[in-house]
């Protein structure tokens, strides 16, 4: 073979290597097994590809929603506090304050099913069975008046559901609609006649302020010396375990100096405190009745409540299934006992 031919062969090999399909392999990694792919490849596409067999009714979905979702999203998917509403808002997308929900905004039902299946419930993701995901999806559709109360969502009828904003999206068009921003000669002198301040951030006053800074400036209210109540100090290890277990509660309840009423009331000083007595929190009728009957959050009562909230006070609004392990319950109570009013 001539030198010329050798060179062209080499060049040909190089060109082939540049094509991804024919590139050199490093022989690293191992083949993924079908079970492994099945465990991780859960995404669902707009055409329904990826949906498992199954079905769920609006009625079943309502029960599941109350237990699994309502603590953040509200009983009717209206959203609580800063947590997102899932229903309503149809026809508002062009308004000054659009309400974007699964019903008013999301273009594909697949997105809703996929997100619930892989990422919800918050803090306990991937715990729902396919039928449960179908049912909760059906209930959210119902909350948006997109299906009737006897509707049953299945893999087979999935694509028949019409999403109101399915045609509400366009692909990025900045290169065309914002072509005028490509302007290589921007103005340098006398670009406008005058300038006026039209809005100021300090007037709005929503910027977080360093607490230490406030204290130095004397703007913060003087902290009253709290009356120290001597009690047997809880076991530090138990408190630490409780701090960790309390994560299950943190989506709704706050503790500490900066705590505020949230989805649930502040829990500072809750151990030994009369029930339904935190100012400014809207308790359910069930809890208020229990409080009128003299319920005090003793350690025993708290433990019973945390074990099965729905049983201890029937009809209360804490949509939380309960803490399974007794040691976690004790740890949470020990942790809560470290926060005073």
């Amino acid at each position: 073979m001539s030198k010329y031919l050798k060179a062209t062969t080499a060049a040909l090999v190089l060109m082939l290597a540049a094509h991804p399909a024919l590139a050199e392999k490093f022989g690293l990694g191992r083949e993924a097994l079908p079970e492994e792919i099945a465990a991780w490849d859960l995404d669902v596409s707009p055409d329904g590809t990826g949906l498992p067999p199954g079905s769920g009714s609006v009625m079943d979905g309502e029960d599941l929603f109350i237990v699994q979702c309502a603590a953040c999203h509200g009983d009717f998917a209206e959203g609580l506090g800063n947590w997102p509403p899932l229903a309503g808002g149809e026809g508002t997308l062009g308004d000054a304050r659009p309400l974007k929900t699964a019903g008013s905004y999301w273009p594909h039902l697949s997105t809703l099913w996929d997100y619930i299946n892989r990422s919800m419930p918050y803090g306990n993701a991937q715990s729902l069975a396919p039928d449960e995901v179908y049912a909760i999806t059906a209930y959210i559709l119902y909350s948006n008046f997109l299906v009737e109360d006897d509707f049953v969502l299945t893999r087979e009828n999935f694509l028949e559901v019409e999403m109101p904003n399915a045609d509400g999206f366009i692909e990025d068009d900045r290169l065309e609609t914002e072509a005028h921003f490509w302007n290589t000669e921007p103005c340098m002198e006398d670009c406008k006649e005058n300038v006026e301040i039209t809005m100021r951030a300090l007037v709005l006053d929503v910027t977080p302020v360093d607490e230490q800074e406030e204290a130095i400036m004397g703007e913060a209210p003087a902290v009253e010396a709290a009356e120290v109540v001597m009690t047997a100090a809880p076991d530090p290890a138990l408190v630490a375990a409780g701090e960790s277990a309390f994560r299950a509660c943190q989506a709704c309840h706050q503790v500490g100096d900066t705590a505020k009423n949230h989805v649930g009331p502040i829990l500072n000083g809750i151990v030994g405190h009369p029930a339904a007595a935190i100012d400014g929190f809207g308790y359910s009728g069930a809890i208020r009745t229990a409080a009128e009957d003299g319920l005090v959050w003793t350690e025993e009562n708290l433990a019973a409540f945390l074990k099965e909230p729905g049983k201890f006070i029937r009809g209360n609004r804490m949509t939380f299934a309960g803490v399974r392990k007794e040691e976690d319950i004790n740890a949470i109570i020990a942790y809560l006992s470290t926060f005073q009013n």
Partner: peptide
């Protein structure tokens, strides 16, 4: 195809004044 997952439909899409929303606005200008 694009999955059109939650983070590329419900979020990270840009609603214009007329209520139509841009999707796939990936580049940061």
């Amino acid at each position: 195809n694009a999955v059109e997952s939650r983070e590329e439909t419900s979020k990270y899409t840009d609603t214009l004044a007329n209520g139509i929303s841009r999707k796939w606005t990936w580049v940061m200008d």
